[in-house]
Amino acid sequence: MDRTLARRLEARFESVLHGAARQRHDQTEIRIGAGDVIDVLRSLHDEPDLAFTMLADLAGVDTGKEMQVVYHLWSATTTDWLRVIAEGLSRDEPRIPSVTFLWQGAEWMERETYDMFGIIFEGNRDLRRIYMPPDYTSFPLRKDFYLPDDAARSTGAGVRHVERSRSPVDAAPGVLRRTGA
């Protein structure tokens, strides 16, 4: 765990951070709004004391209340993985700027996220479905998309503990929320 990284990030991005940087194991996590993505990621990528030149992953998350886009970055200047969470995207019309201007390789990751969550990445010039057929209309990884054989919604739900029903809840750390039967 790199304590100095958290302090550096808090000092540098004080005005845009949502809350303090969190650290656990080898990961540092910061949360920002969707509108600040371009500025923050450009600074993280370009500034020589940060130099997060490698985008390790781009993931969409549907918490049930809002959409998030999560970036994992790697830099030689720190021993930590940096997780940048862009939060607060509306579930009805999630929009966020694309990062393809920094990492061309994000193009397909954004296409995948669009395909699975319906998150629109403004500035991605090839934002079409990548896995599902072009005439498909749903977004399968959203929490309101249920599988036909979802055990939690079967008539036997709750009979066995592994089939206990669960509804989407925010996985906010520190708040233990148990759902279901």
Binding site: D57, A59, V61, D62, V70, L141, H161, V162, R164, R166, V169, D170, A171, L176, R177, R178, T179, G180
Partner: peptide
């Protein structure tokens, strides 16, 4: 999310 199934696995 505290249950026995992952909430999301990317």
């Amino acid at each position: 999310d505290g249950t026995d199934q992952p909430f999301r696995l990317k």
